[in-house]
Design a protein around this nucleic acid. Structure first.
Length: 573
DNA sequence: GCCGTTTTCGGCCCGACTGTTTTCAGTCG
């Protein structure tokens, strides 16, 4: 299941929310928020820490350490339960609506008895909020729009959440006696950006022990269906997991079938029919004789249909079958191709790990170079200054090459202002090895303005990477309104790379936009945007997204040797 | 509730935007 750190993070964050909603001390709420983030990003498993070690986590003092200890020991925290009892869970859920915070959520509950997102939508529609102080026509509109954005996620979970769970299920089932193979399939294997339910496939002669082990996993809350071939459960977090058990001989056909996508499989079945064959999860069969042709490996199935094996991220019926037939499948980038990370933060701004910790952790991942790119001063809340940045640069230079000979680059994440300008004057920017530039404000500009703004940023000779180019947050904020083709043209023309931000709630650019951008000859950078050491491995999700966008290693600048990368970063200056 | 080149209480990220209001509260990054 989730790391204990994440569970504790969620608990502390919930307590912070409850304090805000009930009108408690704002600084106290903030203290819990800070502690939540620090625990979530802490490099050690909190469930293994004694009280003294717990208090060494930044922003965790006696009171919070006690609560964490209480939670780990009993699964509950009395103080949290007490507040939960006073506020319906739906009120807290309402604060997830963009633009609706704790104060007004509480007001809606007090004044109108509204205690769920559904009731809120009803009340808006019925005009019951009209005479409430602070609620006008525009607010109603924003609430409905916010709910729509939230619902677009449609009960799906982020890739990392699904991946953590799936890998744990696979690990536990693999250890069951008689389990010959076990793997996750479905949209997760294809690295879709959100996951509706998790498909796990096992091969065994006797499904019994596997099904038993499956329904008895500690995080299973409910068994939805139980059979010999398929069992479905719902976890305590509400995620559905399906386990299918097949005989070892059908492994390849089953893996192919359950990986999907549906559209891709339909294409394959059509090809089979034309060849006098029938494809199902049990194998590829001869229609006339009914004889099994192949089923043991995916490679055999594809080969018998006249195709090379197609990597799962391509299986969306977006031209991969045609490309395969022509022998023109791209040689997709792999995680091992990445030589470094070009967008990361430290606790100098909003990260929770120190420079030393981040650099050491990055070196352990095997990077040959690594860029530190903390926030620039126009993101005022980060309180960046010239002096702080220069002091960090010295610290970075001193660490350069000290961990596994990993080379360090000193950069920054600039803020693209509404006109397309950035934080510092050119003389100061000259001192950086690279500048990522991102939109952090004025997300609502019209398309013409936003396009001009981003194009101008590309034209800045110091800006080498556009960070999270559309600014979307999955389930929380839509992409900015920008003429993407215009932006992509500008990137190609100016030698500015587009980021593929690997953070699971961003994955920005998205696979579809990558496909579109690469047609313009754009270069990309797959970055973690890590704010903690635990975020550094998120790169796998960025690489998965890049693969869905058909990218080869050569199109991604951080697969390049440092020499070639540096030349690109100079941008002809 | 945490933190301290402040040892014990005062400060804690701060500026901008939005929608509502008529002087500002709430929300966001």
């Amino acid at each position: 299941m989730a790391r204990p750190n994440e569970e504790v993070e969620a608990l502390l964050q919930e307590y912070a929310d409850l304090i805000s909603i009930t009108g408690g001390d704002a600084f106290k709420a903030r203290a819990y928020e800070k502690a939540a983030r620090a625990v979530g990003g802490y490099h050690e498993d909190v469930s293994r820490l004694d009280p003294k070690a717990l208090r060494e986590i930044p922003h965790v003092g006696r009171s919070i350490a006690d609560k964490v200890e209480e939670y780990l020991r009993t699964g509950h925290v009395a103080a949290v339960d007490e507040l939960r009892a006073r506020i319906p869970a739906g009120v807290r859920e309402m604060t997830a609506i963009p633009g609706l915070g704790p104060r007004r959520a509480m007001m809606l509950f007090r004044e109108r008895g509204i205690s769920s997102v559904e009731e809120l939508v009803e009340a808006v529609t019925a005009g019951r909020l009209r005479d409430l102080r602070g609620f006008g026509e525009k607010t109603e509109e924003n609430i409905l729009h916010g709910v729509a954005v939230m619902r677009q996620a449609g009960g799906r979970v982020l890739l990392n959440v699904a991946m953590d769970l799936a890998e744990e299920v696979v690990a536990e089932l693999s250890a069951v006696t008689g389990c010959a193979r076990c793997a996750y399939a479905g949209s997760l294997r294809r690295y879709r950006e959100t996951i509706g339910d998790i498909d796990v496939l096992s091969a065994a002669d006797d499904p019994g022990p596997l099904m038993d082990a499956f329904v008895n996993l500690s995080y299973v809350d409910e068994v939805i269906a139980r059979g010999d071939k398929k069992t479905s459960v719902r976890t305590t977090k509400g995620l559905q997991v399906d386990l299918r058990v097949v005989p070892m001989g059908a492994w390849g056909a089953a893996l192919q079938y359950f990986t999907g996508s549906k559209a891709h499989n339909i294409r394959l079945r059509e090809m089979a029919v034309r060849a006098g064959l029938k494809l199902s999860e049990y194998g590829l069969f001869d229609v006339e004789t009914g004889d099994l042709v192949v089923s043991e490996t995916e490679e055999e199935v594809y080969e018998r249909l006249g195709l090379p094996w197609i990597p799962p991220p391509l299986r969306e019926d977006r031209g991969e079958v045609e490309a395969a037939l022509r022998g023109e499948l791209p040689d997709l980038i792999e995680e091992g191709d990445l030589r470094g990370d070009l967008h990361t933060h430290t606790d100098l701004t909003d990260g929770v790990s120190s420079l030393d910790e981040m650099v050491a952790a990055a070196a352990r991942l095997g990077h040959s170079y690594y860029a530190v790119t903390d926030h620039a001063p126009n993101l005022f809340m980060q309180r960046m200054s010239d002096d702080k940045m220069l002091a960090q640069r010295e610290a970075v230079r001193a660490l350069d090459g000290r961990h596994h000979r990993m080379r360090l680059l000193h950069g920054t994440e600039l803020n693209i202002d509404p006109d397309g300008g950035v934080d510092w004057p050119p003389e100061f920017l000259d001192g950086f090895d690279l500048c990522v530039a991102s939109v952090h404000s004025h997300f609502n500009q019209g398309s013409a303005e936003m396009t001009r703004r981003l194009v101008r940023a590309c034209e800045n000779p110091h800006v080498t990477i556009i960070g999270h180019p559309t600014g979307r947050l999955l389930g929380r904020r839509p992409a900015v309104d920008v003429d993407l083709d215009e932006l992509f043209r500008a990137c190609a023309r100016t030698g500015t790379a587009l980021e593929i931000n690997s953070f699971p709630d961003r994955l920005d650019l998205s696979d579809e936009n990558i496909l579109r951008a690469r047609r313009h000859g754009v270069r990309f950078a797959v970055d973690s945007d890590a704010h903690s050491v635990v975020h550094l491995p998120h790169l796998r999700f960025g690489v998965g997204t890049a693969r869905r966008g058909w990218l080869t290693a050569d199109e991604v600048i951080n697969t390049w040797p440092l020499r070639r990368l540096r030349s690109f970063l100079r941008k002809g200056r």
